[in-house]
């Protein structure tokens, strides 16, 4: 299944992804980067579209 994978090195932790996630699957971890709860992620890619730094990719995760 496709899930959101975040390039944490380039994440600016703005929280745009957190706001759009319909499953509340993303949190900004200690103000450093966004962290996806893969169990909750349904792969809708709304966060990928919202991310201003374009650091989210949808990847196949088993």
């Amino acid at each position: 299944m496709r899930k959101a994978i975040i390039n944490q090195k380039q994440c600016v932790s703005c929280g745009a992804c957190v706001k759009v996630c319909p499953r509340d699957a993303i949190e900004i971890y200690k103000g450093m980067y966004a962290k996806v709860d893969l169990d909750k992620c349904v792969g809708c890619s709304l966060c990928k579209k919202a991310c201003p730094a374009s650091v989210i990719e949808m990847e196949d995760v088993k």
């Binding site: 600016v12 932790s13 703005c14 201003p52 730094a53």
Partner: peptide, 12 residues
Amino acid sequence: KPRTWCVYCPIG
């Protein structure tokens, strides 16, 4: 993207 300012926002 709409929130591109956030990428280089000095306060951010």
